[in-house]
C-alpha cells in the first residue's frame, strides 16, 4: 500500500501509524486463523489414522520414497558432520590436554543433539519441500478433487500415509546418520592420530548411556511428524495456482525447520527434568 503524503510531499504520521496498526491487526488475525486451521488439520489426521480402511500399500510406497530415497543424502551429511565436528573440536581439547576425550565428546554431541537436529533439517529440506510441492500441484491440477469425486478419501490416501511414513522413517534415518557420523568421527580422529577402530568405539560406547541415545531418538518421531504435518497442511490447502506450489514448498521447509527447533527446545527441557 503506498504511503499517503500531504501537499508538501511529507508523510502524514497519524495515517501512517493507523496503516501500520491495521496491517499488524490483519497479520495477527491471519496468524490465529492459520493456527486454528492447522489444529483442525491435526485433529482430522488423528481421526483418520485410526479409522479403517488402512492404505498399507501407499504407506509402504511412501516409506520407500521418504526413507530409502533420502538415505544417500543423510549418509553423506552424517559422514561430513562427524568428520568436521572432530576436526573442529580437536584444537580446543588439545589446549586442555584432553584429546583422549575426543571420541566420547563427539559421540555425545552427535547422538544427543547434532545428529537428530541436522538430519531432521536435511529431512525438512528434502522431504518437506517435496511433499508440500507435490500436494500443492495435485491441488492446483484438480487431482485431489478427482480422487474425492471417485469416492476415495484423499486425506487418508495422501496425507495420513505421508505423515505416518515420515514419523516412522525419520528415526530410522537419524539412527543411520548417527552411526555413519561416528564413523566420520573415527576418520577425523585418525587424520592426526592413530586410534584403532575397536578402541575408538570402545571409548564411544563407554561414555554413551541410555539417557543419551533414547531421548535423541524419541524426539525424532516428533520431528518427523511435525515436518510431514506442516508440509501436508501447506500443500493440501494451497490455493493460488502455480504460485501456490512454490509458496507451499517454501513454507513447508521454513515452518518445518522452525518447528524442529521449537520441539528440540521442549525435548531438551523435558530430558533435563528427568535426568535431575
Amino acid at each position: 500500500m503506498p504511503i499517503e503524503t500531504n501537499k508538501n510531499g511529507k508523510v502524514n504520521p497519524v495515517r501512517e501509524l493507523r496503516s501500520t496498526e491495521n496491517s499488524f491487526v490483519k497479520h495477527l488475525k491471519e496468524f490465529f486463523e492459520e493456527i486454528t486451521l492447522l489444529t483442525k488439520f491435526t485433529f482430522r489426521f488423528f481421526k483418520e489414522v485410526i479409522k479403517p480402511p488402512y492404505e498399507f500399500n501407499e504407506f509402504v510406497k511412501q516409506s520407500y520414497l521418504i526413507g530409502y530415497k533420502s538415505f544417500p543424502l543423510v549418509a553423506i551429511t552424517g559422514l561430513i558432520m562427524g568428520l568436521v565436528l572432530t576436526i573442529q573440536s580437536r584444537p580446543t581439547l588439545a589446549q586442555f590436554g584432553a584429546e583422549s576425550w575426543l571420541p566420547a565428546m563427539v559421540a555425545v554431541s552427535i547422538v544427543r543433539e547434532i545428529g537428530p537436529v541436522i538430519t531432521a533439517l536435511i529431512f525438512a529440506g528434502k522431504v518437506g519441500s517435496g511433499i508440500g510441492a507435490e500436494l500443492a500441484s495435485m491441488k492446483v491440477t484438480e487431482q485431489i478433487d478427482a480422487m474425492e469425486v471417485s469416492g476415495i478419501n484423499p486425506f487418508k490416501y495422501l496425507v495420513v500415509t505421508r505423515i505416518v511414513s515420515a514419523t516412522v522413517m525419520l528415526p530410522v534415518l537419524v539412527s543411520a546418520a548417527n552411526a555413519i557420523s561416528l564413523y566420520g568421527a573415527y576418520i577425523g580422529v585418525n587424520l592426526e592420530g592413530d586410534v584403532s577402530f575397536r578402541l575408538f568405539f570402545a571409548q564411544v560406547f563407554d561414555k554413551l548411556s541410555f539417557t543419551d541415545v533414547f531421548p535423541g531418538i524419541i524426539k525424532t518421531f516428533f520431528f518427523g511428524f511435525a515436518v510431514a504435518l506442516i508440509s501436508c497442511y501447506k500443500g493440501y490447502n494451497s490455493n493460488k495456482g502455480t504460485e501456490g506450489v512454490g509458496k507451499a514448498a517454501n513454507s513447508a521447509v521454513v515452518f518445518g525447520s522452525l518447528f524442529i527447533f521449537i520441539l528440540d527446545m521442549i525435548a531438551v527441557q523435558v530430558t533435563s527434568l528427568f535426568s535431575r
Binding site: 500441484s137 495435485m138 491440477t141 484438480e142 487431482q143 478433487d145 478427482a146 474425492e148 469425486v149 471417485s150 469416492g151 476415495i152 478419501n153
Partner: peptide, 19 residues
C-alpha cells in the same frame, strides 16, 4: 456421499490424471 459419487462421473477441465 462417496458411494453416491461412484455413480457420478466427473471429467475435469485439465483431465486431472494422477501424474
Amino acid at each position: 456421499l462417496n458411494l453416491l459419487r461412484k455413480k457420478v462421473g466427473f471429467l475435469f477441465q485439465s483431465a486431472a490424471l494422477y501424474d
